[in-house]
Simulated assay, not measured.
Amino acid sequence: MSGFVAELVGTMILIVFGGGVCAGVTLKKSAAQNSGWIVITFGWGLAVMIGAFAVGKFSGAHLNPALTLGLAMSGDFPWDKVPTYILGQMIGAILGACVVYLQYLPHWRVTEDPAAKLGVFSTAPAIPQTFSNLLSEIIGTFVLVMGIQAIGANKFAEGLNPLIVGFLIIAIGLSLGGTTGYAINPARDLGPRIAHFFLPIAGKGSSNWKYAWIPVVGPILGGMFGALFYKAVFLQDVKPAFWVISVILLIVIVAAYVGEKRLKHPEAAASK
């Protein structure tokens, strides 16, 4: 199995289980309806674990463009494989979302809330604030990528690493996920959002493209910084890219903060 196919299949599995648990908890007349955040976080942790077990020996089971880019930036993954990995992840995420749509086919029509339907496919902030939402995704993905590298540095019984990574996903969801729904993965959010846009979902409403850039940009920046931070702090291998990404990260965060302030107080911004 090629890296492209492995990433496609693994990400599709990830979305089938992850999107599936969101659908089960959210959509009306599902037996799992209203079973809560704990069920969702455990469902996503298991989704990552199963996807990683399925394709780990073929591609390393990145299943996440933020991880792929982070590892490439830190020198742990060849740049020439990055495009095919990310393409596989995106296609897999779209296909996985389509499977979830088909699995819950009768439930879309009886669920009136368009936001609930979109929530099956993609994330949304509990409190919409550009600066805070972006920061949440950066922090969550920073913890994810740094945590994966830290887990990889430890010795477990053969084959147990995906299980530990699954627990890491659960921990991130429980501790950090309540703000934005912890996309922490551009493919996980953008792929299903694209599927939501094209699928004939009854009463689906908007795909919320205005927010869609945050769960893409935030995880990419957080993932790259997490990988470079691990190298610099844990392994004392400070690469020039560490400082470049640090500056870019600072600029983006400051720009998001200033932009949000200007939107909140347009009169004061205009007077300046």
Rank of each mutant, 00 (worst) to 15 (best):
A6L: 08
E7C: 05
G10C: 07
M12R: 06
I15S: 04
V16I: 12
F17L: 14
G19Y: 10
G19N: 13
G19K: 09
G20W: 02
C22W: 06
A23R: 00
A23T: 00
V25M: 03
V25I: 08
K28Y: 01
K29E: 14
N34L: 02
G36Q: 07
T41E: 07
W44T: 02
A47Q: 01
A47N: 02
A47C: 03
A52T: 02
A54K: 01
A54G: 05
K57V: 09
K57E: 15
K57A: 15
F58M: 12
A61V: 04
A61R: 09
G70H: 03
A72N: 13
M73K: 11
S74H: 04
S74F: 06
D76V: 01
P78S: 12
D80A: 12
P83N: 13
P83A: 11
Y85Q: 03
L87Y: 02
L87M: 11
L87I: 13
G88A: 09
I91P: 03
A93Q: 11
L95R: 11
L95D: 10
G96I: 04
A97S: 14
A97H: 12
C98P: 01
C98G: 14
V99D: 11
Y101I: 04
Y101S: 08
P106S: 11
D113C: 14
D113G: 10
L118T: 01
G119V: 02
F121K: 01
S122P: 00
T123K: 10
A124Q: 12
A126R: 14
T130V: 14
L135Q: 09
S136N: 06
S136A: 15
I138A: 06
I138D: 00
I139S: 10
T141Y: 05
T141M: 11
V143F: 06
V143W: 03
V143Y: 02
V145W: 00
G147H: 03
A150W: 10
G152H: 08
A153N: 09
A153E: 05
N154P: 00
A157Q: 08
G159H: 04
G159Q: 03
L160E: 07
N161T: 09
P162L: 08
L163V: 04
I164A: 10
I164W: 09
V165T: 04
G166Q: 04
G166E: 06
G166K: 04
F167D: 01
G173E: 05
G173T: 01
L174H: 07
T179R: 04
Y182E: 05
Y182L: 09
A187C: 15
H196A: 11
F198C: 15
A202E: 15
K204H: 14
G205R: 12
G205I: 07
W209C: 13
W209S: 13
K210G: 14
W213H: 14
I214P: 03
P215L: 09
G218K: 03
P219F: 10
I220N: 09
F225P: 00
F229T: 06
F229Y: 10
Y230G: 04
K231N: 12
A232N: 08
L235H: 12
D237H: 15
V238F: 14
P240W: 13
A241H: 10
A241N: 15
F242C: 07
S246F: 08
I248T: 06
I248H: 02
L249M: 15
A255G: 05
A256N: 14
Y257I: 00
V258F: 09
V258M: 13
G259Q: 02
E260C: 05
L263I: 06
H265L: 15
P266Q: 15
E267S: 07
A270Y: 14
A270R: 15
K272H: 14
